[in-house]
Amino acid sequence: MELTAEIAAYRLGNGDPGRLVGEFRRAVLLVPLADETTGGLMSAVSGGIRWLYAFTDEESLGRFAEARGEAGREWPYLSILGARLVDAVVPEVDGPAGIAVNVADEDGAMLFPPVAGIVPDGCAVDLRGDGNGEAA
């Protein structure tokens, strides 16, 4: 099953968390690049977590651009496997980081938080003992 179908099943209460994370890791995601002044990947901070934006296809990215009132500009993006995003990119972020998938899709959005089983253990907030990033 593809990631969007797993997200839909999970949101309906019929999904399996392990299958959802597995599909996320196997999916090729589109991650918009931040503007030239800030560099890196587009993200937002909420609740002390940096959320990297990722989309399952160009249509989902387009809905995000439209929701931001920026559909008329070019949106460069990186195509990356979900596994590479959490295993290689998340550890490079200063502080806790998760992935926000298809955030402009009211019924299709999903957050993959920085917890064990999703991000590497060294980045998982639920495994930290003192709140500063050190493992318990």
Rank of each mutant, 00 (worst) to 15 (best):
E2D: 15
L3P: 04
T4I: 13
T4Q: 11
A5T: 15
A5I: 11
I7A: 03
Y10W: 15
Y10M: 15
Y10P: 10
L12D: 15
G13E: 02
N14H: 08
G15D: 02
G18M: 07
R19Y: 04
V21A: 13
G22T: 09
E23C: 12
F24D: 02
R25D: 14
R25T: 12
R26H: 14
R26K: 15
R26S: 13
A27L: 13
V28N: 11
L29N: 00
L30D: 08
L30T: 04
P32S: 08
P32Y: 06
L33G: 03
L33F: 12
L33V: 09
E36N: 06
T37S: 08
T37K: 08
T38D: 15
T38V: 15
G39N: 03
G40S: 13
L41R: 02
L41I: 11
M42D: 12
S43E: 04
S43L: 04
A44H: 06
S46F: 08
S46T: 13
I49H: 05
W51M: 07
W51T: 11
L52Y: 00
L52N: 00
A54P: 03
A54N: 02
F55C: 04
F55Q: 01
T56D: 01
T56I: 05
D57T: 14
L61F: 03
R63Y: 14
F64M: 07
F64Y: 04
A65I: 05
E66M: 07
A67T: 11
R68F: 07
W75Y: 05
P76D: 00
P76Y: 00
Y77E: 12
Y77P: 06
L78K: 02
I80E: 05
L81N: 10
L81Y: 09
G82K: 00
G82C: 05
A83F: 07
A83R: 01
R84P: 07
D87N: 07
A88G: 05
V90E: 00
E92W: 11
V93Q: 06
V93F: 05
V93L: 05
A97L: 03
G98W: 01
I99N: 00
I99P: 00
A100S: 14
V101G: 10
N102W: 03
N102V: 07
V103E: 13
V103G: 08
A104Q: 10
A104E: 07
D105R: 12
E106H: 13
E106V: 13
E106S: 12
D107G: 10
G108Y: 01
F112T: 07
P114I: 08
V115F: 04
A116R: 11
A116W: 03
P120R: 05
P120F: 07
D121Q: 14
D121H: 06
G122Q: 14
G122N: 12
C123W: 01
C123F: 05
V125P: 01
D126A: 12
N132V: 15
N132I: 14
N132C: 09
E134S: 11
A135C: 10
A136I: 11
